[in-house]
Design a protein around this nucleic acid. Structure first.
Lengths: 232, 232
DNA sequence: CGAAATAATTAGTCTGGACAAATCCGGCTC
DNA sequence: GAGCCGGATTTGTCCAGACTAATTATTTCG
């Protein structure tokens, strides 16, 4: 329970935990250890351990048996990791021509090892992009993030039109499928039919018909396009 | 003394030791532990330890109290590290515009963390460069290295002309000085005067006069230009 | 309410890779 | 040949960060 200052440079492991805490709940709510364990692929005791360390360092709050969330400082650190990750993904896709669906894993490693100097250089090279290849906004150097009002595609009401904005980037297989179906950032979609009981959704993606279960759409966020009523 | 196979993927530390062994004697002679310790900034016992591990894994030969050198497999691994390092340096300088004198440290970290896929992509982006920014040749994907007959600048006989080919890249301060003096890969030089007793060398670098001690030239390799006799 | 089921925490280990202190060996000097 | 010196090695620790097994707290449900 000693409360020491965090080391001037965070270990890779710490960075991972902080980032996980952020992405598992960007709004800063308490995240249960089990979810962190699942995301990072470590055991539950490892999570408890590290959370205690991070708490002693003032990077997270961790009341006993009540999950954890980031302190202001922890959030700052997490956001710089998010920035690094997204800048790198953009770079890997735009400059090196890697595929949309494979940049995530590469960035996941590099984000821990690239210096600020190199990060700034690639950011400059791309003229400070504001979105990564999956459509996520890139925080600026001070951890400020453009906020947007997006909704999960599955919640789109019958007949409504929308534009795809963000794609969750953790499952390669699903991402490949989406790409084939045309579900990429910027694509225009319309919800044509919802059979809630069967969990079947029928929609139009850039004019083409797509029929799928909700499972197959989970992780796609859209921005509603006004001017088209719900009906029909 | 158990002889187990090396892990399919070498730890960062192993990679460092192998590369050090290679650069400290590219021709494959025995390197004393003390030199490795100095280069990697670790203690002597750590070196002995790791050499024993690497020997058990068949990556180095390490007869007792007789230094160590790379096995064929160790050398292969070392050369892929050298390749990574040099490709990265080239990329950092040419594409990201970092300075000649600062790319080394960055590459030193990244070489351990970049995937083959990304390495190939940046190599392709630059159309497979054959030399890094300091003039060192870049091994190909199979560890083959263009051999060149270079001599230390200080051994250049009086009156002889030569072209600078390689610059050792470990000392930032000296590299900055060389850059200012015009001693960069490709520069043409002529040895004008040697006062061996005082350890003073006077030379012409791209037409400009430079006076310095041998200390200040250590680490510059040149290719002799024929057609200019030794005398005056 | 009490008993299971579930989730979190504690306790104790392991592994990689470093270190300092102590010891050992080979070669040079006298 | 005896002694000494410096580099190499052995020995015993430490640290971060993971793990398993055992324990405890919380939630849910009969």
């Amino acid at each position: 329970m000693t409360t020491r200052r965090p080391p001037r440079t965070l270990s890779r492991s710490r960075q991972d935990y902080l980032k996980a805490l952020y992405v598992l709940d960007p709004s800063g709510g308490a995240v249960p250890p089990s979810r962190i364990a699942a995301r990072l692929g470590v055991s539950a005791p490892s999570v408890t351990n590290m959370l205690q360390t991070l708490a002693a360092e003032g990077l997270v709050n961790h009341p006993r048996r009540a999950g954890a969330n980031l302190t202001a400082e922890g959030r700052r650190q997490a956001l710089t990791m998010v920035r690094r990750h997204r800048v790198l993904e953009t770079f890997l896709a735009r400059v090196l021509g890697l595929d949309w669906s494979e940049v995530h894993e590469e960035a996941e490693v590099l984000e821990h090892h690239i210096s600020d100097r190199v990060l700034d250089a690639i950011d400059r090279l791309m003229s400070h992009p504001s979105e990564d290849p999956h459509g996520h906004p890139i925080p600026d150097g001070h951890g400020r993030l453009a906020r947007r009002a997006l909704a999960p595609l599955v919640t789109l009401p019958l007949g409504a039109r929308a534009t795809v904005r963000e794609i969750r980037d953790r499952d390669r297989r699903r991402m490949a499928a989406w790409k084939i179906a045309g579900l990429v950032p910027g694509a225009r979609v319309r919800m044509c039919e919802v059979r809630a009981l069967d969990d079947v959704f029928e929609l139009e993606v850039e004019g083409r018909r797509l029929v799928t279960g909700s499972e197959g759409l989970d992780g796609i966020l859209v921005e509603r396009r006004r001017g088209s009523g719900d009906a029909r």
